[in-house]
Amino acid sequence: MSAVVDHHDAHDDHHGPVIPYAEQLKFNRLGIWLFCISEIFLFAALLVARFVLWQENGEIIRPELSQEVGLITTSVLLVSSYFVNRGETAIGVDDRKTFLNSYLIAAVLGMIFFIGVVVFEWNIFGLEATIGGIEVFGHLKPTDGVIAGIFFAMTGMHTIHVLSGIIFLFIIWNNGRKGHFNSEEHWGVEASAIYWHYVDVVWVFFYPALYLVGSVYHG
């Protein structure tokens, strides 16, 4: 690891030492991975709270949620990760068109997930409908004790991340559209992809914790 500082114009106070792109990329990668590790503690604390609070007589419980909606939103999110990956690979070979399309698709899928959680699971508009005997809108209210508390906390914290991820994808898409990024230099794309995958992986842990583990609690 030689010193990274390039000192050729260090005497002029207004132009700092230039850090080569490759070097900066190394910093950035470590930085974002550290950020991901940091966030593990956030989500882990929520998971711990979930297993502590969602208990009835020592038995793990979970709320009554629509399995169908959960499955659909989860699949949508997983598929979106595939598109992000495709986009990142594409920009690596300067295939701008595929990159832009994939990112747009991923962002739209992210939006669908977001709507699935906010409109359907949270049911913020208070709708009611059944399709083929399945209730598609959730019925938990914030005041429904710890069941609702943890549910909204976990989905809420995750959704904030999804929302910021969507915005991130859009920004990258927009800048990509303007001609930024190429196969050599596309840290922005890589960062957004890592972030998006990360948010996805978090859901891979949250989904079973919310929808699958424990026996259904009928409040």
Partner: peptide, 22 residues
């Protein structure tokens, strides 16, 4: 570790402001 205190604090804030229960 800082992340976890964030969780404890936001949960309390939400419990008061949004009527959630923890």
């Amino acid at each position: 570790a800082t992340q976890t205190v964030g969780v404890a604090l936001t949960m309390t804030i939400a419990e008061r402001a949004l009527d959630l229960t923890f």
